[in-house]
Design a protein around this nucleic acid. Structure first.
Length: 570
RNA sequence: CGGGGCGUGGCGCAGUCUGGUAGCGCACUAGCAUGGGGUGCUAGUGGUCGGAGGUUCGAAUCCUCUCGCCCCGACCA
């Protein structure tokens, strides 16, 4: 490709709304342009990077015997009503009406469509197993799109769905996809980590996320360096830590009510009473799809709603509104406590070991002190409810958890029969018995892989593409296109590299060398060949690797071999 | 959805408080020079000041409404 013909509008400055480095660099390199919040045009350079990722994904999915299909983006509401998600998915589901006033949605994910397709065709266990995937545009009306392609509303995703006759087959497919995903991200040149994850609105029995490690990541992951346990903090189990000795042995004093005017937060109350926050019992009133519950965590801990939801086996949980708080506790929010409550009370393990603690008194501006679990209030269920933090004990071994940030680029789910049962997708087994299909689903955010790559691989001058994802292999800079001698050599090299099957960008613009060097660094092509009279006089051209600082001289006839050698070894 | 902020040429911004003929840098066009890290000089192109309504002799500037975008929050009682 000749740069003079390429639509690659590079920018010296980034738009002020671009915050993270991948977003800034993608805009500056002319890879993307914004159309609306979370909605982008993808320009040639950006599309080439996307294609590189897609091709790797295709190759590996095909190798794993998955087959590519292409499903519609506009989906009739009936399918979503069948699965129950029309009502459950919430505002992220963009709903539209057609001219007949019928409801449709823009597909944020395709379990319904694929299940509908498969239930119509698959009759027998002989038709199984099946793994179908597509690479397609998804739309999720995100609450707050940001960071360019990292959290867009419209984005390109590879999603695969598998169907099996037995649990064993389904789990073996899940493990197969796990391996396939590892291979995909390794081939992309990413530093990543698979972690145990929450299943969210997709549902299913268990799942793993594939996280690219990056400080700008929106997810936090907890890892144990002793046993290798790794999980999204939304999911991560907390080990039961042994409370400090004196706390256990403290004499139980009499319950007492104290005046705490206007003091609601843990910090305010503990500051006022001059005690550590771990003496407080934080009392959270939750509404769920079936009842209101009281959840207790220690004052210095945070509640993990996903854990609460699982413990309660609820469809959804959410903090209760003021009115509900009053109904449950009899007092205003900010002064809730478990003492005397009739509602169901669940508590984190750590709450049990608080003695002579502090809680709200279910009365405005009042707290109890010297509260003791068991004596002053009952707990219906105890479990792991806290959000893990750096330094917590690992739940699986004696190690300690570290918390790092990551970008979720892939997610695999063992779905089970959630969709097949809801939508009547069944097959006949060997004995002629009707069974629901056992499903799995496996997603990769293509654009996120691109963004995460840049997030992980850049310097102050621009992008530094890992070879497999780079839009071009080589960038040729003739320092002066008006000099025929030099430009002819550049064109010969260009032809030679093209003939060798490489993707080459020839900067034939009438720009100064400095401009070209800066653009070359910005768009991050792995190899740069500079053609100038200075080097031609010494019988060669200059080769510079984007990842390395120093350039070196090579003979003109060596260029193709040297470039191939460098590109292939990555 | 709550709070805050911003909409002025393609991009980055000043001007708004205190109303008086719309400005800077980059980019773009032409010419000359230059030709290894965003070069110099000269001459240019390009703006309904997000939109609608109002106040005023006069509005980018004041008032009302509206649209869009960004940031924070929307879980710690």
């Amino acid at each position: 490709m000749r740069l003079s013909r390429m639509f690659m509008p590079t920018l010296r400055e980034a738009p002020s709304d671009a915050e993270v480095v991948s977003h800034r660099l993608m805009v500056r390199a002319g890879m993307i342009r914004k159309v609306a919040a979370g909605i982008y045009n993808i320009l040639p350079l950006g599309l080439k990077a996307h294609s590189r990722v897609e091709n790797i994904v295709r190759e590996e999915m095909n190798r794993a015997c998955a087959q590519e299909v292409f499903l519609p983006m506009v989906i009739p509401s009936e399918l979503w009503r069948e699965s129950g998600r029309w009502d459950l998915y919430g505002k992220e589901l963009l709903r539209v009406k057609d001219r007949h006033n019928r409801d449709f949605c823009l597909g944020p994910t395709h379990e319904e469509v694929i299940t509908d397709l498969v239930r119509g065709e698959v009759r027998s266990y002989r038709d199984l197993p099946l793994n179908l995937y597509q690479i397609q545009t998804k739309f999720r009306d995100e609450i707050r799109p940001r960071f360019g392609l990292m959290r867009g509303r419209e984005f390109i995703m590879k999603d695969a769905y598998s169907f099996h006759a037995t649990e064993e087959d389904a789990e073996s497919e899940y493990r197969g996809m796990y391996d396939t995903y590892c291979r995909i991200f390794e081939r992309c040149g990413l530093e990543f980590r698979p972690v145990e994850a929450e299943t969210g609105t997709i549902g299913g029995s268990f799942s793993h996320e594939f996280m690219v490690l990056a400080d700008t990541g929106e997810d936090a992951i907890a890892t144990c360096d002793v046993c290798g346990y790794a999980a999204n903090v939304e999911r991560a189990e907390a080990g039961i830590s042994v409370p400090a000795g004196p706390a256990l042995n403290r004499d139980k004093k009499d319950l007492e009510m104290v005046h705490t005017p206007g003091l609601k937060t843990v910090d305010e109350v503990s500051g006022h009473l001059k005690i550590f926050p771990d003496r407080l019992i934080k009392t959270l009133i939750y509404s769920t799809d079936r009842e209101n519950v009281v959840a207790l965590v220690r004052g210095d801990h945070e509640l993990n709603e996903a854990k609460l939801k699982r413990m309660l086996e609820a469809e959804w949980v959410g903090l209760a509104d003021e009115e509900t708080v009053r109904k449950v506790t009899g007092g205003p929010s900010g002064f809730s406590g478990p003492v005397g409550l009739k509602a169901r009370i669940v508590a984190d393990y750590a709450v049990e070991s608080v003695s002579n603690g502090v809680t709200g008194a279910n009365e405005a501006d009042m707290h109890f002190i010297n509260v003791n679990p068991g004596r002053d209030f009952h707990v219906d269920a105890v479990g792991d409810l806290k959000m893990v933090v750096e330094g917590d004990r690992c739940a699986r071994c004696e190690g300690t958890l570290a918390v790092a940030r990551g970008i979720e680029v892939g997610h695999i789910f063992k779905l089970g029969t959630k969709y097949s049962e809801a939508m009547g997708a069944t097959f006949l087994d060997e004995r002629g018995k009707k069974q629901p299909l056992i499903m799995g689903c496996y997603g990769i955010g293509i654009g996120r892989v691109v963004a995460a790559t840049i997030e992980q691989s850049h310097d102050e001058r621009g992008i530094v593409w890992p070879h497999p994802l780079s839009p071009f292999h080589v960038y040729i800079v003739p320092v002066n296109v008006k000099d025929d001698r030099l430009f002819d050599v550049a064109e010969d090299i260009y032809d030679g590299l093209n003939a060798a099957g490489l993707d080459v960008l020839l900067d034939d613009r009438e720009e100064r060398a400095g401009v070209k060097f800066n653009d070359a660094d910005l768009i991050g092509i792995p190899v740069r060949i500079t053609v100038s009279n200075k080097t031609l006089d010494k019988g060669g051209v200059e080769i510079k690797k984007r990842r390395e600082g120093e350039a070196s001289m090579i003979g003109i006839d060596e260029v193709t071999d040297k470039v191939k050698e460098y590109i292939d070894m990555a």
